[in-house]
Design a protein around this nucleic acid. Structure first.
Lengths: 206, 206
DNA sequence: TGCGAAAGTCGACACGGTGTCGACTTTTGT
DNA sequence: ACAAAAGTCGACACCGTGTCGACTTTCGCA
């Protein structure tokens, strides 16, 4: 089964013909998403873009849904990469909030289209939902930590830091989701709004 | 074309055979949603439930998407009905927030399934998206009004009442969306969380 | 009361996307 | 250099969709 990291001997396993094709298909998918959207979009389209037959495409992905999962997994991996690279900032809560929002905004600037499509398809494709809630949980933890550091109540329950962080997370998700579909400028404004709201919720209102 | 209110002479136009069938199909759709979900679900299923042939179903709705739009429109109408019945409460901001959240929670208790499905399909069905953003805008106005009454800045821009209200609206939508898919109890807790966050954003923290 | 138009019903058809199968060719390791 | 594994493809069966034309039922009105 191609796609899964082939237990790479040494560093970076030889990119076999199949690996290339796979990337090719995924790149094609990413382009097609911008043109037709996911729903209108057939395996045939994917095959055509990759220059292979429809049947061959099934050798790599058994459905367009599975291809989307692979594409999104690749994107999520990129997200975590950046997140890891910028880890550990014991700054003041106000700063932590500002940078967290700014970074999230940057991710939406880069990967807005794929993220939007993945979110759209999440209700229909469990793997996507799992991938997304997983990264959301990481974000929720980060928010909760900042909230507590700012003096928030750490206990459980509907008004505890964890529950409030979850609500904030989904607020940010939806706000960015909508804004990124409008324009880059809208995204910047949405970012500022989220920062302000988060500050107020943390009890750090100006 | 059935479905649209037939310019009813006198009160309540005669419920013709077609009107009944239409309701029958929509009721069947609502039941099917709970069983198979919208994606798996064919015109044939709808027909079977209504006891008519597949071809006949097309007489009423030219696609399952259109049927869903009709079902959701019916639901939204019920939502506005309640909203209208409870209009005009010049209470203190804290009370206004509490009742607004409570009412919204009740709507999700009643119509959670249909609302969730409609939201899921919104990216794919423009009419649903329009219906939903339309009711969201009404809610956003209400939130903004309360925010201003509580001392919020009325100006435009990313930190103005309108932008903040929009963010709060989507927070509430997503939070209730997720919670209503879990359990009625989760919905109640989500409701409390939203109330607390809204209060803090309005500068009315306990 | 009967009659004609509108409303409603249905079987049959064509179409398009899906997924599979078996045979074929290419690549790879030894 | 040769066998196994990887990759490719045409052809096929299947299923849901949407349409069309003929038929039956309902209903307003003369």
């Amino acid at each position: 089964m191609p796609g899964q990291a082939r237990a790479g001997r040494r560093r970076s396993a030889a990119p076999s013909k199949g690996d290339l094709r796979e990337r090719q298909i995924l790149d094609g998918l990413a382009e097609l998403l911008a043109v037709k959207g996911f729903d209108a979009l057939t395996i045939g389209d994917l095959a055509e873009r990759a220059g292979i037959s429809r049947a061959s495409t099934y050798f790599y992905f058994s459905s367009k849904q599975e291809a989307l999962v692979a594409l999104f997994a690749r994107t999520v991996e990129a997200l975590r990469e950046k997140s890891r690279a910028a880890a550990g900032d014991p700054a003041a809560p106000e700063e932590a909030i500002a940078t967290a929002v700014r970074r999230t905004r940057d991710r939406w600037h880069e990967h807005g289209l794929v993220m939007r499509v993945a979110i759209d398809q999440s209700p229909a494709i469990p793997e996507l939902a799992a991938l997304w809630t997983e990264t959301a949980d990481i974000f929720i933890d980060a928010i909760a930590t900042i909230l507590v550091r700012a003096g928030g109540e750490a206990h459980d329950g509907p008004d505890g830091a964890r529950a409030v962080a979850r609500a904030l997370c989904w607020m940010i998700e939806r706000t960015f989701y909508h804004a990124s579909a409008v324009s880059p400028e809208a995204l910047d404004e949405a970012s500022e709004t989220c920062r302000v709201v988060w500050l107020r919720v943390a009890g750090l209102a100006g």
